[in-house]
Design a protein around this nucleic acid. Structure first.
Length: 463
RNA sequence: GGCUGCGUGGCAGAGUGGUUAUGCAGCGGACUGCAACUCCGUUAACGCCGGUUCGAUUCCGACCGCAGCCUCCA
């Protein structure tokens, strides 16, 4: 039985889909004006695992992740670059896909864009005005009247009075109340704009998610996810908009992933302490990055450091090393009633505890190694299949062990030389010329190659 | 200031009212020509102070420290 920590109830709730066998999942995606950083990578990987696991459990999952392709930062960046908004956003949508694909994050079923959802957005704002939740101001903006929505604050655990007390927002005189938030922004002459009943303008940030989630998934759906920093005000406002407009509960389970940190500080664009996914992938295999992200529970903070990445790399290498020498059997399924299968499922059922799930996989790996020492073919096949199947649920082991350990055929020139040295060493060993054999090995070591003599066979891998 | 959450061995990171995950590193051993890989064994921890309890790292309270949100942010 799957339990999900629900921000709304602040506890792990048993997961029950609205529709038997189906799950509707919406995740807040990227604002596309720059490269993705490791924080974005975490969201992509975490919810990719959520989607994969739900599918592995037999659910028919509809996974939506939006793209914010119009907002103040995008406009500012396009101006700085002297390029059009669409050229900027199209470029970074491509880059985002490039990163997500590299990390093994399966594409969502749909990736709706704000600029392609204007009709729905405008219609929703009209409904909110009609129902008395919103008003248009003298300056052409449209605002949501927070005081009209009784349960405002229920997600982030605050109330309107508290928010007033902590108020440090510059006063905007067009608003009736400083806590009101904008649904529609009147455009300045130079700015991109869409025609609306309130004049030319563009949507506020929050409304697009309410409109697009309802369009893609309906007014009431199962899971809504995103980074912890979206809890307030973004998701709080989404609830106010969606539930105000539709008059029903919008989301059953709210999931928020923790931040990636650097030196115990949140990684963010505004602090400037971020690494782009691209930078990290230049040094580490994408699956290592994925493994690193999965070593902690998704709600915990994740401290970014190369030492951690190195540890993840070591751990993944051990898995691949074991997998390298076995034939995979595909008809083993992760969820069986053996000890390992049960433990793996229990870990994942407990709010997607990937850290614990990985430790179960370590136990399977060890059992597989032992089976190999004992030449127990039946067990070897079973454990190998089980390990691989668990890995697939987490999006690991997506490449052959050979590729992971020795790199791609790209290094062909090297490969020939390496093979030659391996052969030379083999000959030296047969001649019992240990000095020569060791000298060849030193040469390989200098090239970043580690040799392993197992079961009469010599294999190699890159450091 | 208000509101959330966190504080576990050298590092990372799960978990539990009593039998001390897991990975990396360390130590001892097996295997190996020597290594590497692998296996076996092993060291070491629960911020501080009270309370509940036969017993608390785990429950409750105070304290200290840290992070996040309250402003664009995954």
């Amino acid at each position: 039985m799957l339990k999900i920590y629900n921000t709304l109830t602040r506890q792990k709730d048993e997961f029950k889909p609205l529709q038997e066998g189906k799950v509707k999942l919406y995740v807040c995606g990227m604002t596309v004006y720059d490269f993705c950083h490791v924080g974005h990578a975490r969201v992509m990987v975490v919810f990719d695992v959520v989607a994969r696991y739900l599918r592995a459990c037999g659910y028919d999952v509809t996974y939506i992740r939006n793209i914010t392709d119009i907002d103040d930062k995008i406009i500012a960046r396009a101006n700085e670059n002297g390029e059009s908004i669409s050229s900027l956003t199209e470029r970074f949508i491509k880059e985002m896909h490039h990163d997500a694909d590299a990390l093994g994050a399966l594409r969502p079923d749909q990736e709706p864009k704000a600029t392609e959802s204007m009709a729905e957005i405008i219609a929703m704002i009209e409904t909110l005005i009609k129902k008395g939740f919103a008003y248009s101001a003298d300056n052409g903006d449209v605002y949501y009247d927070v005081s009209k929505f009784d349960s405002y604050g229920k997600l982030s655990g605050r109330n309107i009075d508290e928010l007033r007390a902590g108020e440090r927002v510059a006063v905007n005189t067009a608003k009736d109340d400083p806590l009101d938030f904008v649904l529609w922004k009147a455009a300045k002459p130079e700015e991109p704009a869409w025609q609306s009943p309130w004049g030319r303008g563009r949507p506020g940030w929050h409304i697009e998610c309410s409109a697009m989630s309802a369009t893609c998934l309906g007014e009431h759906f199962d899971i809504h996810g995103g980074g912890q920093d979206l809890q307030f005000p973004h998701h709080e406002n989404e609830i106010a908009q969606s539930e105000g407009a539709h008059g029903c509960q919008s989301v059953n389970y709210w999931m928020h992933n923790g931040f990636v940190r650097i030196d115990d500080e949140k990684m963010s664009k505004s602090l400037g302490n971020f690494f782009t996914v691209r930078e990290v992938l230049a040094k580490y295999d994408p699956e290592v990055v994925r493994y690193f992200i999965l070593t902690s529970q998704y709600r915990s903070p994740l401290n970014y450091s190369e030492e951690q990445l190195d540890q993840a790399k070591n751990a993944l290498t051990r898995f691949y090393n074991t997998l390298r020498s076995v034939e995979l059997i595909d008809d083993v399924v992760w969820r069986d009633d053996t000890e390992f299968g049960t433990r793996f499922a229990a870990a994942m059922d407990d709010d997607f505890n990937t850290a614990l799930a990985l430790s179960v996989m370590t136990d399977v790996r060890q059992a597989l190694n032992k089976a190999q020492e004992q030449n127990n073919d039946q067990q070897i096949g079973y454990f190998a299949g089980l390990l691989n199947s668990c890995g697939q649920v987490l999006g690991l082991f997506q490449q052959s062990a050979e590729t992971f350990l020795t790199g791609d055929a790209e290094n062909d020139e090297d490969a020939e030389k390496i093979e030659a040295l391996i052969v030379a060493r083999k000959q030296a060993r047969e001649d019992k010329d240990w000095a020569k054999a060791d000298q060849v090995r030193d040469e390989l070591t200098a090239m970043g190659i580690i040799v392993e003599d197992t079961a009469g066979k010599t294999s190699w891998r890159r450091v």
